[in-house]
Structure formats: C-alpha cells, structure tokens
C-alpha cells in the first residue's frame, strides 16, 4: 500500500500546493496581518517544510522549533481561530488542486497535531 505522501503526489505536489495555499493565506483577511512583514522566500521554504510534514513525507518536524517559531505571533494575538483559519485555507487549497477528500482529511489530521506547539499551549 502506498503512503499518503506518495498518493498525494510527493514533493511535486508540495511545490504546487505551496503556491496555491500561500496565495489563499495571504489573501485571507483573518490571518494576513501575521504575514505582513515576512520575507516571501523564507516563508515559502517554511510552508514547504510544513506541507511535506502534513502530507506525511520525510521531514524534520520539531515541536520545539514550531513552538519557538510562532512564539512572537502568539504574543501578537495568534489564537485558535487563526489556526483554524489556516486549516480551512489548506483544505481549500487541496480541494482546488483536486486532492481526494479522504486524503485531505488525513492531511488536516496531521496538520491539526501541531496545534499545541503552534499556539504554545
């Protein structure tokens, strides 16, 4: 049986999704302010690492990095509503890409597992 990562389409799918996902995120008024001063190249590299993880691919996910990386945003008011908005945006991106719903559900489950680290809970 092939893995989730292979079923979605591997690293090529990650590259394609970064574009769609990040465009939706930047245009999402609920969360766009958190990205106002970020460097796009660095942000894209982070999105890629995150999506590789969420797609069940080979990754270096570290809860500690995730926690430290978002601490300044939590201090700036990042909360569960924003986390859920990102998850919705990811779902929308994957739907636009034509990914099957059962695979999307698996991706969102993995993404949701980062919640406590992202929100510093």
């Amino acid at each position: 049986m092939s893995s989730l990562f292979e079923e979605i389409g591997g690293s090529a799918a990650v590259d394609a999704t970064v574009d769609v996902f990040y465009r939706i995120v930047l245009a999402d008024d609920r969360i766009s302010r958190f990205f106002e001063n970020t460097d796009m190249d660095q942000q894209a590299a982070k999105q890629k690492a995150f999506l590789t993880f969420a797609f069940g691919g080979p990754n270096n996910y570290s809860g500690k990095d995730m926690r430290e990386g978002h601490a300044h945003l939590v201090a700036d008011g990042l909360n569960e509503s924003h986390f859920n908005a990102v998850a919705e945006d990811l779902t929308q991106a994957l739907q636009e890409m034509g990914v099957a719903q059962n695979l999307i559900d698996q991706v969102i489950t993995i993404a949701a597992s980062t919640k406590n680290d992202v929100l510093g809970l």
Partner: peptide
C-alpha cells in the same frame, strides 16, 4: 522589490516564476 514580489505573487505569478 520585496513588497513588489508579494504583489506579483498575489496578482497570479507562480512563486517559481518570480526571480528577485
């Protein structure tokens, strides 16, 4: 250039097609 990069992306250019 940095804000322009983001605006180009939002105007529809693929990330891999923006060279800065």
């Amino acid at each position: 250039i940095k804000p322009l990069q983001k605006k180009c992306f939002l105007a529809g250019v693929s990330m891999s097609d923006i060279l800065v």
